[in-house]
Each structure stands twice: as C-alpha cells, then as structure tokens.
Design a protein around this nucleic acid. Structure first.
Lengths: 106, 106
DNA sequence: ATTATCAGTAAGTGATAGCTTACGGTTAGC
DNA sequence: GCTAACCGTAAGCTATCACTTACTGATAAT
C-alpha cells in the first residue's frame, strides 16, 4: 500500500528516467551509463541503488563490471495502482452523471 | 516526451496521492478535502493547482465552491509511458537470452 | 450595503534530494 | 607484489519543495 511511494519517487527524477531509457536497449555497466549522462559516475551509482531498491532494475556482476537492466516486475505494481485509480475515477464519473439533478452533498 | 515529468512529480507527493484517493469516491470541494487531510487548506489549493496542471484532476465551480474530480485522461499518458518501458525491457531481455555467448558489446 | 464563507495568492521557513569531490574496496593484468 | 580499472560509500553543499501564516478576491445571505 506504500510501495508506490518508492516506485513513483524513483521514476520522478529525470536523470533516473534517462537511465531507464538508456537501459531500454539492454543491460549496461555503470561506467557506460555515466558516459552517456550529464552527471558523475558516483551519482549514477546512487541512482542505481535507488532503482534497484525500488525493484525497477536488476544487477549482474561480471568481474569488476556491474551490469544493470530493467526489471519489468517493478513496473507491474505501478500499472496496477494506476489502473485502480483509473477504474475508480470512471466509476465515480458514471455515478455522478447518473444522478444528475440530485443533491445529496453536504 | 517531457510531460511524464509533470505527471510523475504530481503523483510522487504522498499528500497528493491521498487527495486522489479521497477523490476516488467522486468529486469534492477544496474545504472538504482539507478537512480530511493533515495539512492546511492553502496547501490543498496549491496541490490542486499542480494536479490540475498535470491533467490529473478536473475542476467544476458552483458558487463559491470549487469541486475537483479525477481526470482519467491524465493517467492514460502515464500508463502509455510505462507500457512502452515494459515492452522494451522485455524485448531487450529476449534479445539477450537469444544471444547467449555472443559478445557484440562496445 | 455589509458581513460571512469559500477559495486562490504571496512571502517566508524547514526539510529533503540530487550533485560533487574525496576516499576505500575489489578484481584484472603486468 | 604492484599498478590500474571499475565501482560503491561518505561528507558536504545547493536547490527545490511542501508547509505555514497573512492577505486579497469573489459569491451568498441578511
């Protein structure tokens, strides 16, 4: 019920979304990501930790390289939340249209 | 391409998500929202402006009352973004599984 | 017309988040 | 063993954001 906070906070930052966009094509190492981003490598590491904690990326280590890739599972939870909100909003709208003229409000 | 920033930023704040949850049942006035939230009424007004700018809520004015309700359209854009990310991630994963052993990286 | 209610705006404050530089740790190669 | 490359962590700084109080505007009612 409170995990959306982590997911949404993770997706809100522009740099992190840029990182996810870079990972659309497949996994990348930390250095590779930093090379294509306007921030320092430590900053990328911090963002990756956040994304990993949020369940949005997965890690694979090979030697000294740490490869990251998008984890589709994390996005599922977010879609479920938005779907629920969407459904409820439509239901509320239908209910209101249906009761045009009635005045039961406080 | 940059509208997700507004949408995600709007959804990230816990107070704004609480407001949206209150609006799940249907439209509410500003004062009604403030009464059920742990923040002041001006704070609610500020949040509503943000949500409205993001396209997540719609407004209806009746006398001095300003009623707000969830606008399903805004959520659609966000779902589309997540879907694209999801699809690409799955495709990238499939591509990588398929090329086990090959080494075409930079 | 005056008063009261409802709501948006402005200004100021405190906390949070992202960035940087500096450092420590681990693996690969000579 | 020593050096180099790759990466994570720590500390500090700055900017942004959410909140408050005070004020102004607009509608309703007496």
């Amino acid at each position: 019920m409170n995990d959306q906070s982590t997911l949404l906070a993770a997706l809100t930052d522009p740099t992190r979304r840029a990182m996810l966009d870079l990972l659309r094509g497949g996994e990348r190492s930390v250095g590779e990501l930093a090379r294509d981003l306007p921030v320092s490598r430590p900053a990328v590491s911090q963002h990756l930790r956040l994304l990993k904690d949020a369940g949005l990326v997965a890690e694979r280590r090979a030697g000294t390289r740490h490869f990251f890739r998008i984890d589709p599972a994390g996005l599922g939870a977010l879609r479920a939340y938005l779907d629920g909100l969407w459904t409820d909003a439509l239901a509320a709208f239908a209910r209101q249209v249906e009761s045009r003229g009635e005045d039961g409000h406080d």
